[in-house]
Simulated scan of single mutants.
Amino acid sequence: MHQQPQDVATMVFDWGSIKWLVTPDTVTDATSSFGEVVINPEKGHERHLHPDADEVLYVIEGTGRQTVGDAPEFDIAAGDAIWVAKGTMHSTFNTGWKPLRLIAAYTPGGEENALRGLPGFVELPAGTNPTWSPGAARG
């Protein structure tokens, strides 16, 4: 199976966007989910958990701060990998001037469907790119 980013929908939030390239809903026989997350500068998502899946994050580009469970918050940068056990509270915040790009994987897949219920969620159809205005980041 070959998936290209322009061929899948984009989840958009006030903090950034996600393109799920592989999910059990979109790829026959897939048992995990795999996607690219973009967190805009000086933005991040609230602490949350995935009750039924482990999550692995891999930082492609940028810098940020990560929380996992009760451990102290820590810095993340390109090349770092973060494992989050199912049921563990966690969050990611972009501390840099450019987008923080991550790969996110859920095992088992399907946890991405819960994101549809978050406030402000918008799904853009395949082939439509999200837009981000730097002025919106100034608060």
Rank of each mutant, 00 (worst) to 15 (best):
V37P: 00
V37C: 01
V38H: 00
I39M: 02
N40C: 09
N40G: 07
N40R: 12
P41L: 00
P41F: 00
E42L: 06
E42F: 13
E42P: 04
K43E: 04
K43F: 03
K43N: 01
K43T: 05
K43Q: 07
G44W: 04
G44H: 06
G44K: 14
G44C: 07
H45D: 14
H45L: 14
E46Y: 05
E46D: 07
R47I: 01
H48V: 02
H48F: 00
H50M: 10
H50Y: 08
P51I: 02
P51W: 07
P51E: 13
D52V: 02
A53S: 14
A53R: 05
A53Y: 08
D54T: 15
D54F: 08
D54E: 13
E55H: 02
E55Q: 04
V56G: 14
V56D: 14
L57E: 12
Y58L: 13
Y58T: 13
Y58G: 12
Y58F: 15
Y58W: 07
V59R: 09
I60R: 13
I60E: 11
E61F: 03
E61P: 06
E61N: 11
G62S: 15
G62Q: 13
G62C: 14
T63Y: 13
T63P: 14
T63Q: 14
R65S: 14
R65H: 14
Q66K: 10
Q66L: 13
Q66C: 15
Q66F: 09
T67R: 06
T67C: 03
V68T: 09
V68P: 04
V68R: 01
G69M: 00
G69P: 02
D70I: 02
D70E: 05
D70R: 04
D70M: 03
P72V: 02
P72Q: 10
P72N: 02
P72E: 09
F74N: 04
I76S: 09
I76R: 06
I76H: 10
A77F: 08
A77Y: 09
A78W: 08
A78Y: 03
A78P: 05
A78N: 04
G79R: 10
A81W: 08
A81P: 10
A81C: 12
I82D: 14
I82Y: 10
I82T: 11
W83T: 02
W83L: 03
W83M: 06
A85V: 03
A85S: 08
A85I: 04
K86H: 10
K86W: 03
G87F: 00
G87W: 01
T88R: 04
T88Q: 04
T88Y: 06
T88A: 09
M89K: 09
M89Y: 05
H90V: 07
H90F: 09
T92N: 13
F93C: 09
F93D: 03
F93V: 06
N94Y: 01
T95L: 06
T95R: 00
T95M: 01
T95C: 00
T95H: 00
W97Q: 07
W97G: 13
W97M: 12
K98S: 10
P99T: 03
L100D: 06
L100P: 07
R101A: 05
R101Q: 12
R101N: 07
L102K: 06
L102Y: 09
L102C: 10
I103R: 01
I103S: 00
I103E: 01
A104Q: 05
A104G: 12
A104D: 06
A105S: 15
A105C: 15
A105M: 15
Y106D: 09
Y106M: 12
Y106Q: 13
Y106A: 09
T107S: 15
T107M: 15
P108F: 10
P108L: 08
